[in-house]
Amino acid sequence: MSRLLVNEIPVMVIPSLAMKLGLNEAVVLQQIHFWVEASLHVVEGRKWVNKTYREWQRQLPFWSESTIKRAIRSLESQGYLLSANWNRLKLDKTKWYTIDYERLKDLEQNEAEMSQDQCKQLEWKVVDGVMVEVLPEIHMDEKEVPFFDIDSKN
């Protein structure tokens, strides 16, 4: 087996989320979600996690710190990622992050509605959670189908 396959903690990405938010944003959001879920720091009814850009970059070493910064800022500007300074010392500028799960739920709901609208327009339907194209029935009169008798010796 290759040493490059699942011998370390994998980074996850949900393809549909990546299509909506962008690949970098989806990976960063998933990573933040992982740490938020494990966090014991609760403020205003939300779990928060604090890490510097450098600490995020150590977890996602295939990206530069500036790429991670851009992804975080993008998520903040779109409203999916909330940030604050919950540090005891105001000198400490390390950001605390949490996810706006309600906004994410709205994105999921909008996607479901759009999928149903697309199904109607494009003649698609959802079967077992998967979109499949509805193929039109083909009716042909036997007279229209060319027929060649390959056994005849003409």
Rank of each mutant, 00 (worst) to 15 (best):
R58P: 02
W86H: 12
V13R: 00
K47D: 03
V36T: 00
V43F: 08
L75K: 00
W63Y: 02
S66T: 13
F34D: 12
L104R: 01
Y101K: 12
L75T: 03
H33T: 05
K120N: 01
Y101F: 11
V28R: 00
Q116E: 15
G45K: 08
R103C: 06
A71F: 05
R70N: 14
V42F: 06
E44H: 10
L89I: 13
S77N: 03
V42R: 03
Q78P: 06
Q59D: 14
S83K: 06
T52K: 00
L104W: 03
M114P: 14
R58I: 05
M114H: 12
W48F: 08
L21I: 07
A38Y: 05
L23H: 04
R73W: 06
T98S: 10
R54H: 14
S16Q: 15
L82Q: 11
M114Y: 14
V43K: 11
L122Q: 08
R103Q: 07
M114K: 13
L122V: 05
Q30R: 03
R73L: 13
N87H: 02
L60I: 07
K20F: 08
A112L: 09
Y53M: 04
K69N: 15
E55N: 10
W96F: 02
A84T: 13
T98N: 06
V27T: 11
Q121K: 12
N24H: 05
T67C: 06
E25Q: 13
D117G: 13
E76G: 07
L82A: 09
E111R: 08
E37Q: 06
E113S: 12
L21V: 10
Y80N: 14
Y101E: 15
Y97S: 00
I68P: 13
Y53F: 04
E37M: 04
N85K: 00
K20W: 05
N24L: 07
K120C: 01
V36I: 01
T67E: 13
W48D: 06
I99V: 04
F34Y: 08
A112W: 09
T52A: 05
K105V: 11
L81T: 09
E123F: 05
V28H: 00
E102R: 09
L81K: 09
N85Q: 03
W96I: 01
